[in-house]
Design a protein around this nucleic acid. Structure first.
Lengths: 127, 127
DNA sequence: TCTTGACCTGAAGTTCGCTCCAAGTTGTAT
DNA sequence: ATACAACTTGGAGCGAACTTCAGGTCAAGA
């Protein structure tokens, strides 16, 4: 698969794909004789994984470390699991922070709604 | 209230507080004859609001716009309400993205756990 | 064969949100 | 009066995650 196809498939720019590769997130992408990338199905699965994790805000450096460990084989299973547990915990905190802010916005939006309705009524009564 | 006290109260650095002010998020902080800031209770409430919104990831530029409109009085009620509705919607999407990633991590962590337990058993059996 | 578009590289540039620095002023305790 | 900590400003610097650029190579169609 060419880089433009992967770009289209996952809605990531070709620049971002090359950037991820340079950053160590896609260490296995093969190149043909002419130096042109040919993404395997496995590469694509990694792209999809990285896109998902980045979408939730996991830092590139953390993903790089995870992939590094993955490359090293089974003796890193524990460390990899711990990374995922740590990041999961951070996401839970982030989600809860966001939820609290949504609740606050809900309240504020309601106050605005009521105020606006009140102002409209006053206007109709020619106050 | 002095800047150091506000900094302590809301756990924001004095640099951040001055940055927010320069960025237009705290337009009303008064200064005494010597040029030293004196935060009112109202200023503090804005600091708290900004801290909360920034904590959820609302951009400084959006908050600046919101505060600008607030300064302009009642004729901007509708526009202000719309900003909050838009940002609320983005937060909901962000929260859902994060939740989906948490679920994915939960699954992956379980797979790791099972794999690790399996490897340990094999080790005990001298495989 | 020629052109054109997609690909390549390394490096520089951009945006965001702070964070730090230099150099100077103010307020307070002794 | 003197020290010294806390305050002030404008501007530079930083880390993260891209994004763009310059200059070149490659592959396919007319």
């Amino acid at each position: 698969m060419k880089i433009s196809e992967v770009s289209e498939k996952y809605n990531l720019s070709v620049d971002t794909l090359r950037y991820y590769e340079k950053a160590g997130l896609l260490p296995n992408v093969q190149k043909n004789a002419g130096g042109i990338r040919d993404y395997s199905e496995n590469d694509c699965n990694w792209v999809e994984f990285i896109k998902c994790m980045r979408g939730a805000g996991l830092p590139v450096a953390v993903l790089k470390r995870y992939i590094e460990l993955f490359q090293q084989g089974e003796q890193t299973l524990g460390e990899r699991k711990q990374i995922l547990i740590d990041e999961r915990q951070k996401l839970i905190e982030k989600r809860d922070t966001i939820q609290a802010t949504i609740n606050r916005l809900d309240f504020k939006i309601n106050v605005y709604e009521q105020t606006i309705v009140k102002r409209e009524k006053e206007l109709l009564q020619g106050k």
